[in-house]
Simulated scan of single mutants.
Amino acid sequence: MCDNFKPKPVIVFSGNTMEANVVKSMLENASIQAFLKDEHIGSIAPWQVSAGGGGAVKVIVSSLDQQEAEEIIARYERNEDQ
């Protein structure tokens, strides 16, 4: 790894408050630290943070955990479609 590499926060999921909280819990159960962006305003006035109000609440993780987080979220989304 490059010595000057600095982890950055990345958005790995966007959805409504309930979906974002489920994803955040799943990531934390996998020992991935995550937090929600726009949790409150995304519930009260989602059109203020997202065009049309869709995907107003974002789940953020470190870029170091991005790949693992995206794999967990992909499994969650596959199961949700069934």
Rank of each mutant, 00 (worst) to 15 (best):
A69L: 01
I11G: 00
E80Q: 15
A20D: 02
Q66C: 11
E68S: 00
N16V: 09
E70V: 00
S50E: 03
L27H: 10
Q67A: 13
M18G: 13
N79R: 06
F13P: 05
A56C: 10
D81V: 12
Q33M: 14
V49Y: 11
F35T: 09
E80H: 15
P46R: 10
I73M: 04
G52L: 07
I73P: 11
S43W: 07
M18P: 04
E70A: 03
K6F: 00
M26H: 08
G53R: 13
A20Q: 06
L27R: 05
Q48L: 15
M1L: 10
I11Q: 08
Q82T: 12
K24S: 08
L36E: 06
L36S: 04
V22T: 13
P46I: 10
S25V: 08
I60K: 02
N16A: 07
A20Y: 00
W47I: 12
G52D: 13
V10W: 02
K58E: 01
I72A: 04
V23A: 07
N29T: 14
R75Q: 09
Y76M: 03
V10D: 08
M1T: 04
V10L: 03
V59W: 00
V57P: 00
E19G: 11
G42A: 11
S63K: 11
N21Q: 14
D3Y: 14
Q66P: 01
Q33D: 12
A34F: 12
E19I: 03
I73R: 00
V23R: 00
V23E: 05
G15T: 05
E71W: 09
L64R: 09
E71T: 12
V57G: 01
A45F: 13
V59Q: 09
V12S: 03
K8W: 00
N4T: 10
I73S: 09
Q48A: 15
V59K: 02
N4C: 15
E77D: 11
A34M: 11
I11L: 08
S31P: 15
I60E: 03
I44V: 12
Q33P: 07
V12G: 01
Q48C: 13
K8V: 02
E77N: 12
S25R: 09
P46W: 05
I60P: 02
V10N: 03
F5D: 06
A74G: 09
Q67C: 13
V23Q: 01
E80L: 15
A45S: 12
D3H: 14
D81I: 10
I32N: 09
V23M: 02
V23F: 08
Q67F: 14
A34K: 05
E77W: 04
V23S: 00
E39T: 04
S62C: 05
E39A: 10
